[in-house]
Amino acid sequence: MRTDRLLSVRNLKTYFLADEGVTKAVDGVSFDVSAGRTLGIVGESGCGKSVTALSILRIVDDPGRIVDGEILLTKNDGTPVDLVTQRPNGKFMRSVRGGEIGLVFQEPMTSFSPVHTIGNQLTEAIRLHERLNKAEARERAADLLTMVGIPRPAATLDQYSWELSGGLRQRAMIAHALAPDPRLLIADEPTTALDVTTQAQILDLMMSLQEERSMAIMLITHDLGVIAETADDVVVMYLGREVEQGSVENIFYDPQHPYTRALLRSIPALDAAPKAKLPAITGSVPHPFDRPSGCSFHPRCSEAIEGLCDIEEPETWRPAEGREVVCHLFGDREMAVSIEGRRS
């Protein structure tokens, strides 16, 4: 299943080197994205999920820098290229952005230009990667809009982004990202600004497009419900680091890291008992600038072991292919069992 590997991120570290100190926004993240599959990256604000996406596309703003790691993109002919070694604005990266990899942002309102029509921006994207004349490009653009389910494509081409509703704008954004027929679509909170009903439509659209084109999707979100509905594999991040990784079934039915478990417990489920006290996680996400020592989750973790979790950084445990847990408790099963025993 994992043979068709398209993108492989290895130990990626993206730091923001500001005058007042170093913010380790992404601090050692590894995962693979395969063709035809959806990788969900989930975490709360400040966990580095967006910076990971920006790093892959090499569009991290100053003073952010990729300080370590590899981002291996498998080219069409099967050879891998490390995107970290490429110049961010070089010819190759420009052909990757909006070529091999399409990007859908959270806020389609700010990612479209308000002074150019949708058609203008779509044909520009098409003609950057393909030699077509204006009329042909316009035709392609109309086809794309039809494909994403926009009811009157010809009329929409002549509209501005602010004339469209949120749902239509996000559809146009997806059309824009799909214009050069990318093999990987990175969607950063694509439905967060939308209503649930529109969200369901957009997610359905992305899933059906993926099936048609056997495209890989990297879906970044804070919403565990969206992950459960769309992802095949999941990476859970906390403060710039991966805490757990596995198939969607692993994460939802057999979560191992205390953070994942707490996160799943703290959402009020539609079928749960009403007004019951929610098992909340104490405290709030610290700023990545002052990351706690040891395991960064230990101050909020109900199972933290004093003298271990607050001092030593946990190792990554790999109990099975594609499954990773970064936690002291998991590493030493026996210790975990004895702690359970003491507590009960």
Binding site: V196, A228, E229, I267
Partner: peptide, 9 residues
């Protein structure tokens, strides 16, 4: 109600 994503894959 139908559109709400459920946390059950």
């Amino acid at each position: 109600l139908n559109a709400v994503p459920r946390t059950d894959p």
